[in-house]
Design a protein around this nucleic acid. Structure first.
Lengths: 198, 198
DNA sequence: GAAATTTATGCACTCAGTGCAATATATATT
DNA sequence: AATATATATTGCACTGAGTGCATAAATTTC
């Protein structure tokens, strides 16, 4: 007998839970022994699944970490679409980024950042995923501001992702002294100054 | 008896030649069967060395391709240092990039670009190497223009690499219709327009 | 409750990459 | 020219990531 319409079947719930157990196991072991030294066997054991099953949830070991920062593209695109279309895209981007970033705590961002730096392949994959984010943001820009010239929108998308990347870098370099929002603002000011200063 | 001071010993010459044979073998086989389907055994055989020896020349399979685009950071840094220090950095960057890019033919750039797209790992490594280039360019900027604010120089380095990346993308998308120099100019104009337009 | 789908697992396999020890080749020394 | 030393090449055995396939277990559908 089904008691309440939770609209999520047992299958979906279990799948979500297992996925989470894998992520937890991965983060725990990566944190303890480092990324490279942690084998998939160990992660599978810790998560209570077989090694083979791991690959039904993630295509590769690094995906565990990449999944942590996945969603930047989608989220930023969504935040952009929430902006009024009559605003200049650069201003809209600034607002969207600030809104997006507000909920994150520096500590959690720093912790993830540290793990990302522990392996070359992870580092590489992270950059690649930024490129995907960039493409997604570009698509959103084109859709929302179809009259703006394409090269400018490509550059804006690229700048937005670079701003996030540089701000996270600086956050990490400064060990969280200044909040991410401030660092993002700094990037926008740098952009204006750079273009004006000639 | 040594006949002429070629200043390159047999050892160095052989090493250079072997490295080149590996690259040639790799490109040939990647082009024929694709990146993933080409094993290191096949490359080693084609280059006339043992599989183990391959790893004395490259850390990994993807390095063969990455080595193709390596040097962007160094070259751009050098081109920057050749610019007069009283010029505004953005103008200097534009000149440096245009000078740097002039000698390359669209065909060779397109061919390499196609190979880079054939594998996810290669793609990822390529992006990672862009990040290293960016860091190198930033260092050169700071050295040459120590009085400019740091965030602006970080952003400029990031913009320069993004401009190269976007221009190569467009070159590939347009199948070489417009030369790389033109596309780079377009990026610089987009930057100005983007920052002004508010 | 039976049939159809989806998920979990074991097994055998390929291939990238590493450590180590032995051999071959190039350079330096006398 | 012979020898010592440094560097390059190779084979071998190993670890670990990732895939294909076939089978068993669980979930959903009817």
């Amino acid at each position: 007998m089904t008691v309440m319409g939770d609209d999520e079947g047992v299958r979906e719930r279990k799948r979500r839970e297992t996925r989470q157990r894998i992520v937890d196991a991965g983060l725990k072991l990566f944190g303890r022994h480092g990324y490279e030294a942690t084998t998939l066997d160990a992660i599978a054991a810790e998560a209570g699944i077989s090694r083979r099953t791991f690959f039904h949830y993630f295509k590769s070991k690094d995906e565990i970490l990449i999944s942590m920062q996945a969603g930047l593209g989608e989220q930023l695109s969504a935040a952009l679409r929430a902006q009024p279309a009559h605003r200049p895209p650069l201003d809209a981007m600034r607002a969207a980024l600030l809104a997006l970033v507000a909920p994150y705590s520096p500590e959690s961002l720093l912790a993830i950042d540290r793990l990302m730096h522990s392996s070359e392949t992870v580092q590489a994959r992270k950059q690649a995923s930024y490129i995907r984010d960039e493409a997604m943001v570009f698509a959103a820009l084109r859709e929302h501001w179809p009259d703006e010239p394409e090269p400018q929108m490509r550059l804006l998308a690229s700048f937005a992702i670079a701003a996030v990347r540089l701000s996270l870098d600086t956050l990490s370099r400064e060990e969280g002294r200044r909040p991410l929002g401030t660092l993002l603002e700094e990037s926008f000011e740098a952009l204006e100054a750079l273009a004006r200063h000639r």
